[in-house]
Design a protein around this nucleic acid. Sequence first.
RNA 1: GCCAUCCUAGCUCAGUUGGUAGAGCGGCACAUUCGUAACGUGCAGGUCAUCGGUUCAAUCCCGAUGGAUGGCUCCA
Length: 583
Amino acid sequence: MSHTSIDTQRHSAAHLLATAVLQLHPEAKLGVGPAVDNGFYYDFETAEPLTDAHLKDIEKRMKKLIGRDVIFEHRELSLDEARAIFPQNTQPYKAELLDDLAAEGETVVGIYTSGDFTDLCKGPHVRSSKEINPDALKLMRVAGAYWKSDETRPQLTRVYGVLFATKEELDAHLHMLEEAKKRDHRKLGKELDLFTFSDLVGAGLPLFTPKGTLLRDLIVEKIHGLQKKYGYQKVTIPHITKRDLYQTSGHWEKFGDELFKVKGQSDQEFVMKPMNCPHHTQIFAGHKRSYRELPLRLMETTTVYRDEQAGELLGLSRVRAISQDDGHVFCTTEQVAAEVSGIIDVIRAFYTSLGMFEEGKYWVSVSVRDPKTPEKYLGDATRWDDAEHILEDIARKEHLPYTRVEGEAAFYGPKIDFMFKDAIGREWQLATAQLDFVMPERFALRYTDASGEEQTPVMIHRAIAGSLERFLSVIIEHFAGAFPLWLAPTQVVIIPVSEKFADYAESVRAQLEAADLRVTVNNQSDTLGKRIRTAQKEKIPYMLIVGEKEIADSTVSVRSRDDGDAGVYTVTSFIATIQDRAQ
RNA sequence: GCCAUCCUAGCUCAGUUGGUAGAGCGGCACAUUCGUAACGUGCAGGUCAUCGGUUCAAUCCCGAUGGAUGGCUCCA
C-alpha cells in the first residue's frame, strides 16, 4: 500500500531507471534524474549510445527491481565522503554537482541508496520499490539533452518514462496521446488539404492551398472587423531592406545570425525582414507629426522571414516564413494604458468567438526583465520599471489570469503574452501587446506636443492571432479540423440524391451563394452514402440532401456535421437559420 | 545547431536475411442514378528521398546531402 505521492514514486522510478541502465552499462556516467509531469527521466552518458531499441530491456529490468522490494535508504554524508562515492573520473557530472553544493556553502549532502545503486539526492523517496505499480510504468523514448541545459556542455542521453498510480491512468494517458495524434495539425492539414511542404521549396516554408488560404483570409478579416472601431489603418511595406534599418533598430547585433541575406546586382546587401516594426517607424518618420495625430495606429498582415535552427521547425507551429497580423501604435505615455486595454478588448472578442477565451484554456504572461541579466535589455531602468507597472496594472484591472514571468521581456520592452495550449498540451504564445520605449528613441521619432515641444512617442507592438501559421496550428487542433461555421472553408455541400436532381441542386446553390455562403455541389456518381461520408470526412458543417421530395416544395433535407439529421427546411428558412453564425 | 529514430505510389502502410516491388484509400474510365458514413469492374501511377561508395548485382550494406519525427538549445 502506498502512502507516498505519485511525484515521489516517479522520482524513485528515476533511480530504478538508473539502476537498470547501470546493469547494462556499468560505465555509464550519470546526470540528473527528476520527476516531471506524468513521469520522470534520467540523463546518461554511455559508451554505446542508448537507443529506443534498448528501452524494452531497460523497462523489463526496472519492473524486476520493483518486484524485488528494493529498499530506499537515506544518509547524510560529508562532502568528502560523497566525493569518494562520486569520483571525478567515473562520475564527473555528480562530482560537478558536489562542487556546486560546496560553492553554495553546503557541508553535508543527502545520499539515497536503493539496492546496489547510490545516488546524490535530496529525496524524498518511497520506502520500498513495492510502492510503485509496475503495470503503470512505461519508458517512452530517448532524447538528447545538454548537461545543465547548456548547449556548450556535453549532450547526454535522456530516457523518458511515464508512471501513474494505476494501470488505468497509464492507459488513459496513452489513449490521450493517441487522440492528440489524431488531431495533430500536420495530419489534418494534409487530410483537409490546407497546406503542404515541398522539399524543393525548403524546410519551414509552408505552401497554403486554396482552402488554407481561405482560412487565413477569414481570420484576418475577422480581426479587421473587430478592431475597426479602434482606428487602425492598413499599411504596406516591402519584404527586404538594407541592413542599415536593423543596425539602427538594434536588431542586427542581437539577431544577425537569424537574418536571411539577399544580394542584388550591386554590392549593396539586403536582408529579408524578420519583423515589421522598424519599417513601420519609417512611415511615422515620413513627415512631421503632431500630437493631434496620436495615437497613430498602423497595421498590416505580412510575412517575415527568420532563419530558425533546422531542429526547431515543427509543422506550422514553427516556420521560417511567418505571417503576422502585425500592428504598431505610436502614442504618448498617457495614452498607453487606454491603447493596451483596447488591444486586450480585441483579443478577448476574437478568442471568445473561437471558444478559446475560457478559464483554464489560456493564461497571460506579464513578461518582464530578468533582474539578473540587465545587460540583455536596452533602455533606461526607470522607463522599464514604469512600463512593467503599467502592464501589470492593466492585467489586474482586466481580470486576466496572469503571471509575472521574469526574463521573458523582449530586449526593447516588457510585454503581455497570451498563451494557449495545443492538442497535447504544448503551450504557444499567440496574441501579444508589447511596450517599446527603445525603438522610437533609436529612430529619433518625434512629434510636436501641445506646447510646441518635440517629444518622443511610445510604441506599442501588438498581434491578435500572432503568427498566422502558429495560430492555424493551434485552432486546427483545437477544433480537430471541424471549424465553426464562419471559419469552415466549405460551409455547405449540396448532395443530389441522383443526377436527375442536378438542376435543382444548382438552383439551391445559387440561392445560398447569393446569401454569401461558401457552397459546393457533390455531383459525383458515388452513392448517396458515400458522398455523405466524404462530406463528413471533409468536416463540412452542413450537408443538404435534395431529391424528388425536396423539389416538390422547394425544400432541402439538412444534415449537420455535428448532430446528424436536422430535418427539412425551405431554402430561405435554412439560410435564415445559419446566417448569423456564418459570417 | 546538437542527440536519437525515420524516408517505399497523391495518402496510409506491407515487402525484399542483396537478384530493380505490393495492398487499401484516392485519381481516371466504364457501369450504376442510388434517400443520410464506403456499389462494382478495369486502368494508370514508383530510377523504393537525392548523390556517391562496396558488390557480378543495391530499394536493402556503408557514407554524405536533403527532408520528417521526438527531445535539447533558441524564439525579435
